[in-house]
Nucleic acid binder design. Structure first.
Lengths: 353, 353
DNA sequence: TTGTAAGCGTTATCAT
DNA sequence: ATGATAACGCTTACAA
């Protein structure tokens, strides 16, 4: 009568060993065929013609044993992992959470896993290497992260940039310049004459374009944006708050502020509230992205909608298409994701001076 | 003089083939040793004693070739992937984004990748299977997701539950009952006498405990929570808004509302604002989690802080410890993550009736 | 149509 | 101390 081991207390030491997985070999034995036949049947390869009879047996056996292929083994064999990576600068920005969510939905449908990595500051290259070690088939990169990676590295990589126009790498992009323009036109239409822009210091084009669209539209209406009205701040609520504080402390306050993203804008609202400055009575604030929070703050934030989930989904679809070798149609309509102004309560008529 | 191929337009058809990776064999050849020796040297196995000389050569060769081991191959060989999965119900809830962020930080440091999957509704089991096919070494599960998976499946799995106390599976948990109690005590101390709770219908214990802590604390002060003051609503801002709307429409309004999470609470604030009900003048609202948004809404939300990043990090650490076979000390201090009340502007003295 | 054989890039178990 | 050799579980020729 075998004795139980003494040491192990029940729940403590169960570091469950890699469960005895059912392999294709097991299925083969049960079905009375060779292992590669199993692979052929289940591989879904349309070329492979197998006798309906054996196919049936194999399927039944697989079913019975609850067989699920080992994707690591498949990956090793095919030199691809059916996994893709995504590198974002800041998971706590809801915009990126939405991008990830959109991408994950598409990818999981297509049989890919999504490896998520957060690249704070300068860790981007090493994070990317870690992903590469796993033979990821491709990678989704945020604009700001991409800016931190050597172009030559990206060239080797099946990368799709998210919300970053580029003619070097495949990408999906929103109409960022239009976003800036819409913000400007909206503020102009409300009679504003004195403006400010708050955005992060970055080379990400989508951000730069938001700024540019704003500035250009103002200029074409005859308004300049003096350099002290162009504030650089981290793309966070805290950053927006601080930048706005400074802006409000200045001699002549702007009455129309456009922020490079909603987080910054929410910070701006906060700073106004801190300073007892009425929004939109004294200052109007426009954000960009239309994250959920925009509808939840008070006053509700006027912003330019950039559908983050859709961007993530599109980026994922594009990547999968390329991986599966489908020729992405160059002139597919809707390449650029349109944006639209969402009027809410943070903007209003400029007070007559 | 070689002619360039005609068909391929430059950027179009570059579906970059799996890049020619450097293998351990390549390193071995360059170093003049056998391939397994390379593995020994780079495997970091302290047991393995190799001549300082050869070690040196191998390291140099690896360096020179830019060798990075193929983790799929390693995984196949070791029957483990050094990847772990996380299944969350809703990426757009910042709480989960923070959990992921905290976990990812810990995991990447420890050499693990994080596969993120969003399990809407009933997809949880299939999502989990997809992860299992990749031989994940373990999985982090949110309470609400875990509730949708058959216990027998979890038993086979190296699971760590996030913010879900359990004596069947390893877990990290916050002091959810204290959260409810703190909310109640806070409202009581402000003189409130009529209360409501809004939370999702779920079996997740951390949620149930928040409710319970609240109810029990009220009761021990002599206050009951009538059933129409206990509203079930989706754990979203929209859910909280709707539930609060109903609550405010009732005959006798509660003056102190505790919400199961901050998203719900923010919705509640919105509903009050919709209805022209002053916060905290007429109604006080307490949330739970202390997501960033709590500080950004107006009025700033009084809430119970539950450090989501820390929960994610702890869950990841616990999982890694188990995987690496370290005996997690049973009675480690701080097993339960303490919570604390954060007083902000959404709560105030009850008006004298 | 299906089985045999080889190979994917590691780690692990032996000899030597 | 290190080199052969054999897995790991799959896919892909190539034979039969």
């Amino acid at each position: 009568m075998p004795r139980l081991p003494e040491a192990a207390s029940p729940a403590e030491s169960v570091i469950s060993p890699p469960q005895n997985r059912v392999t294709a070999m097991d299925v083969a034995r049960l079905a009375g065929v060779s292992q590669p036949t199993v692979s052929l049947v289940l591989g879904g390869n349309p070329q492979a013609r197998i006798a309906p009879d054996t196919r049936e047996r194999v399927l039944r056996a697989a079913e019975e044993l609850g067989y699920r292929p080992n994707l690591l083994a498949r990956g090793l064999s095919q030199r691809r992992s059916y996994a893709i990576g995504i590198l974002v600068p800041d998971l706590s920005n809801p915009f990126f959470a939405d991008v990830i969510s959109g991408a994950e939905r598409v990818l999981s449908r297509a049989g890919y896993a999504l490896l998520v990595s957060e690249a704070s500051d300068d860790s981007a290259p090493s994070r990317l290497e870690a992903l590469q070690s796993r033979l990821i088939d491709g990678v989704l990169l945020d604009a700001t992260v991409a800016a931190m990676i050597a172009p030559s590295v990206l060239d080797e990589l099946n990368v799709v940039l998210v919300d970053e126009p580029s003619d070097r790498w495949p990408n999906v992009a929103s109409d960022a310049e239009a976003a800036g323009r819409l913000a400007a036109e909206h503020l102009l239409s409300l009679g504003h004459q004195s403006f400010a822009f708050i955005g992060p210091a970055t080379t990400a084009r989508s951000i730069r374009l938001r700024e540019r669209g704003f500035v250009v539209a103002l200029r074409s209406s005859g308004f300049m944006l003096p350099s002290d009205r162009l504030r650089r701040a981290p793309a966070t609520a805290a950053g927006g708050r601080e930048a706005t504080r400074a802006l409000l402390a200045g001699r002549r306050r702007p009455t129309g502020i456009f922020c490079a993203n909603d987080l910054i804008a929410v910070g701006a609202l906060k700073a106004c509230s801190d300073a007892g400055v009425g929004v939109p009575a004294q200052v109007s604030v426009v954000g960009c992205d239309d994250i959920e929070m925009a509808r939840l703050v008070t006053p509700e934030l006027t912003t330019v909608e950039v559908r983050a989930r859709e961007l993530g989904a599109r980026a994922a679809r594009l990547l999968v298409q390329r991986l599966e070798g489908e020729q992405p149609r160059r002139s597919r309509p809707g390449r650029v994701l349109p944006v639209r102004l969402v009027r809410r309560a943070s903007t209003g008529e400029a007070r007559v001076a």
